[in-house]
Design a protein around this nucleic acid. Structure first.
Lengths: 211, 211, 211, 211
DNA sequence: TATGAATGAGTGTTCATTCAT
DNA sequence: GATGAATGAACACTCATTCAT
């Protein structure tokens, strides 16, 4: 494995050389206007070409930077840039969806709102939505996809409250995320009607899980 | 515009030079032991590294070929290799799932079997399953993802027969495929229990769509 | 269409990524010792093997560089390198011929000096002369071959001054350039006597156009 | 020099392996409908992309052949194909121009007709005209450009007959060919008026050389 | 904090040619 | 006379990264 990596990479991986990325990561924020400018350009590139298609050169162009050196300076590796980009879009999605979900009182209503607000997020910000799904697959998989835990907790609370029937919360959470992501892509790619899809999907899910 | 392109690229793009790939494609099969050897190596590479990670060099190594020239000779472009690999994998999945689904008489049973056999396919051939999902995203998206039409037709027949309630078949089909793919990846990556997941997912779906 | 192109090709074509080439081009010079080193090696390669025969690898060898990456870093594409090489060569020829022509007062004398200094340029710098002719065909054709306009203007002024008879200046300019280039190649390839050829050609041309 | 060539080439160059090409060349004809089909396709390719741009693959496509093997079978090397193609177009041009020139009695008229018929050949067969010029540069240079000898002989006879003044026939022949070729390209590329150009060029040349 | 220059490994694809029927 | 398969070298070009200021 490590045989395949250029030696320079390993140094950074081993944390021998600390970059600003390391510092910022420890501080849990993106900080600095430069970093933000780069991350937002990365979001657009990922939305357009997928996370596999992201390259330093493309980000340089998208952000109007002078050299790729700026990126490696601020983020270290490509992987790190992708990770921070993922956090960035996740934060944006959470800021959009979170309050709406929190405003609901019953678990069934929260789930429905989770679905609806997720799909509405596309209309609000299709670029971020697209990037979010792609990054969830590429980065989220590597980091463990923590988003599922929240969903599983919600299901569990709904079952304890008697709102939802008994079912395996992990399987349901995985399936729901997959269903939503596929629907988002369908809307983004094929231009389906967001409101209709949201209502239909929410109904499908509610019937699947309600007591 | 076209002036700037190296001439070599252009004519293969335009399909000017017919490669063995062209012939085989017209005949609708992979044919030739060499081609099959290459496609099967490609399946393994895609399963391991994703379709974006597939390179001619990796296929050469995986298949034990002498040079990448063999691949471009037989398939022309990387895209064509990926497309044929997708077909190959799809055919295998269809051969596994098709008869089981056909053996069912009711639509609800067919849907349940579609889900179960799809997940069981992982246990039978995890490499092909992984490749199938990845290729469906990368190649299937480009070609229009014809698999959905079958699902939508099934739903429609179920509705006409009174087995299924009224719902938007397209939304449901998209959601179901997304749910299954996510579940497959979860099983493959996290090692969840296939039987349990299949039963749970089938139950979720049945409740969502039955009349 | 554009789907089939490897993404990397596209953005350089679109000029998305600005390379040092872009900067230098805007500044209207070659600048930087590295760039000059590369261009001069390119001149020698073109003189030896023709512009079609120029490859990054040959330039690397000729210039003693460490990798072809240096060329694409500084010039972007092969086409751009060729274009800059053409400019370089043209500038050298103009520096040699320009003052001599400017020193003449009559148009007939200017034309004669144009021919003679052009052929003498070969003796001074056969490598540059060879490269100039080849690049004029390959690159100049694409860019419109502006050199002709100067010749046509000269003819026109001569006609207005009564030095030259009435004739179609475009046809004459094209023919003269073709005649000179063919003569240069003949000298370079067959080793004809430059002085003799210059005198003979000048006489032919003068008789053809004088009033 | 020979170091750079793949070993296989050298065998053929050394004449160790004789191909049908060798046989046909000895017999001084193209023969065989297959060979003709290939040569004519090669003419079209050269006209379109230049002789440097000719490749076996492109000829295969242009001629609708099944494999490049057919070309190497019939012609041996790429160089040989180019040479035979050059002969082919030269023969066509000669068949068009020869009789017209022969019909003239004075040398001055022959020269004028040489120029006019050469330019008219473009209108008759622009593809062959384009290919002829390109091949004359690429192949003709290598083989010594025998066409010039005829022109020089004509000039000499004109001088002996007192029709033409004393001038160096070689320089004049080279210049005339260069002038004509440049004019042909100008017509083909820029769409100049053939009749006008022919008349103008003939007048220029006549004034340059007449006694 | 910033950046111009450099780099070695890698990409897919085309090249003319030969091997073996 | 014909041809499908194979091949190693070459092609322009991009990759993420490091060096040196």
């Amino acid at each position: 494995m490590s045989k395949l990596l250029p030696g320079r990479v390993r140094w950074r991986q081993a944390g021998i050389v600390e970059s600003p990325a390391g510092r910022a990561a420890r501080m849990g924020c993106v900080s600095s206007q430069r970093r933000e400018q780069i991350v937002e350009a990365a979001v657009r590139v990922v939305a357009r070409e997928g996370s596999h298609g992201l390259s330093f050169a493309k980000v340089v162009q998208e952000a109007g930077l002078s050299s790729t050196r700026l990126i490696s300076y601020h983020f270290g590796t490509r992987e790190a840039l992708l990770a921070q980009t993922f956090e960035h879009v996740l934060a944006r999605a959470a800021a959009f969806m979170g309050p709406q979900i929190a405003a609901q009182t019953t678990v069934r209503a929260k789930i429905g709102t989770y679905i609806r607000s997720n799909l509405e997020f596309i209309a609000t910000d299709p670029v971020y939505a697209r990037a979010a799904i792609d990054l969830a697959g590429a980065v989220g998989a590597a980091t463990g996809g923590g988003g599922l835990a929240l969903l599983e907790d919600g299901f569990r609370r709904g079952q304890e409250a008697g709102e939802l029937r008994a079912f395996d919360v992990h399987t349901a959470a995985v399936a729901l995320r997959g269903a939503i992501d596929a629907t988002v892509l369908d809307i983004v790619n094929a231009g389906a009607d967001t409101g209709r899809a949201a209502a239909e999907l929410a109904e499908l899910v509610d019937r699947a899980i309600r007591a």
